[in-house]
């Protein structure tokens, strides 16, 4: 890229030419439960259950826009690694129909399975660096608890969403959804397995709407 300005201009033109409108975004803060532990800088978090409620620790929220959107022809393949006897990432929001691969990057066997109503599967025991990489396609929306039959503490959540517009907040609950369509939708924030907050939003061209979900 010898001429960044031209590139930016081209990109802008492209986007404008596609939608013919200015970019729509939502930003705000999701109220997250207070945790005892100080927020950690890195991206790692784990799934804990408390009184039967599964949540992330440190807490994060998945914010997504619910509505009827056209299905994309292809969806990117996502990965949930098993490394150091944990799942990375621990919380993975995916669009409905996404193929998720579960590569074993440890030195031991793992046995990934789920009894969740949204997706029941059992990948069986497989060694490190199993090829082809075991995967599952998540074709029903909902929360899927991923476990390892061998390592009882390993747990992860895959949130299957019937929308392409979603994001994970930071530990403070801040989020920003971009490239949204205009129209009337419902903005939802998944906080934990028992809590999902929602707010109807009207999105107009070029506007950045601020929605806080306390």
């Amino acid at each position: 890229m010898k001429h960044p300005a031209i590139f930016i201009l081209l990109a802008l033109m492209f986007s404008f030419s596609r939608d013919g409108r200015a970019e729509i975004a939502i930003e705000g803060t999701v109220g997250l439960p207070k945790t005892q532990s100080a927020p950690v800088a890195n991206e790692r978090y784990e799934i804990v259950s408390e009184a039967g409620v599964l949540k992330t620790d440190p807490p994060r929220a998945v914010v997504y826009l619910e509505g009827s959107f056209p299905k994309p022809a292809t969806l990117p393949v996502k990965q949930m690694e098993q490394k150091d006897l944990t799942f990375i990432p621990s919380l993975l929001p995916v669009e409905l129909g996404t193929k998720v691969e579960f590569p074993n990057l440890d030195d031991v066997y793992h046995n990934i399975f789920s009894y969740s109503p949204a997706k029941r599967f059992d990948l069986g025991r497989y060694p490190p660096n199993e090829r082809p990489t075991p995967f599952q396609i998540f074709d029903r929306p909902g929360l899927v608890t991923i476990r390892c039959d061998i390592h009882e503490h390993m747990r992860a959540l895959i949130l299957v969403l019937d929308t392409p517009y979603f994001t994970i907040s930071d530990p403070q609950g801040r989020y920003r959804l971009t490239k949204l369509p205009a129209g009337h939708f419902v903005l939802k924030a998944w906080v934990n397995s028992k809590t999902t907050r929602e707010r109807p939003v009207d999105l107009a061209d070029g506007a950045t709407v601020r929605v806080d979900l306390p």
Partner: peptide, 17 residues
């Protein structure tokens, strides 16, 4: 109780399993 499947079945309400 340590068995992840029973744990999973109880927690995920997969009683059939």
């Amino acid at each position: 109780a340590r068995n992840p499947r029973i744990h999973a079945a109880l927690e995920d309400n997969a009683l059939d399993l």
